[in-house]
């Protein structure tokens, strides 16, 4: 409940900021036309009203356990940062950041190994073997057969490695 309330309040605060921000950054519109700022502002007004109602309902429905929920928030936050879910999120974000600079092959291999391990695969040989096979299948399926552009990487030795692997795959 506490988490939900905080998210609602954050969206509310951001919406109010956007309302004034868009009003101050857009050119002034004529009295008989719908300007560039009025459409987003109209959306924000409905959004703010709905958020206020949602926050009111949250507080009303959870009056009894509100204190306990906020007390638990600290330990819940610590548990979240230790959870598989947070590590999963972190792995996905890291993968997205290294996808272009490191290149598809190494990123895919490392991602499959790390996420597979996170999801409970503890046999190292199995994990590495399946990851290598899937990387090859994805590479051949998309880059070779379908001509989809996959990044080779911006770091020179990784790029050379990708080019070397590509040279091993017959072209169609």
């Amino acid at each position: 409940m506490a988490f939900e309330l905080i998210i609602n309040l954050l969206i509310l605060g951001f919406s109010i900021f956007c309302f004034f921000y868009v009003g101050s950054t857009m050119p002034k519109s004529a009295v008989n036309e719908l300007g560039a700022e009025q459409w987003p502002q109209a959306i924000i007004i409905i959004l703010v009203l709905a958020l206020c109602w949602n926050i009111f309902k949250l507080i009303r429905d959870h009056k009894a356990d509100m204190g306990a929920s906020f007390k638990k928030l600290g330990s819940d936050t610590v548990n979240f940062f230790k959870s598989k879910l947070f590590i999963g999120m972190l792995i996905v974000v890291i993968m997205s950041l290294m996808y272009e600079p490191v290149g598809f092959m190494v990123t895919c291999l490392l991602f499959l190994i790390s996420y597979g391990y996170l999801l409970g695969e503890r046999r190292p040989l199995n994990l590495i073997l399946t990851s290598v096979i899937i990387t090859i299948i994805l590479y051949i399926g998309f880059a070779v057969l379908l001509g989809v552009l996959l990044p080779r990487g911006q770091i020179s030795f990784l790029r050379n490695f990708a080019l070397f692997v590509e040279s091993l795959v017959p072209t169609f």
């Binding site: 499959l112 996420y115 597979g116 999801l119 695969e121 994990l127 899937i134 994805l138």
Partner: peptide, 8 residues
């Protein structure tokens, strides 16, 4: 296993 399917 989902440990293969999910990351794929």
């Amino acid at each position: 296993p989902y440990s293969v399917l999910g990351p794929t």
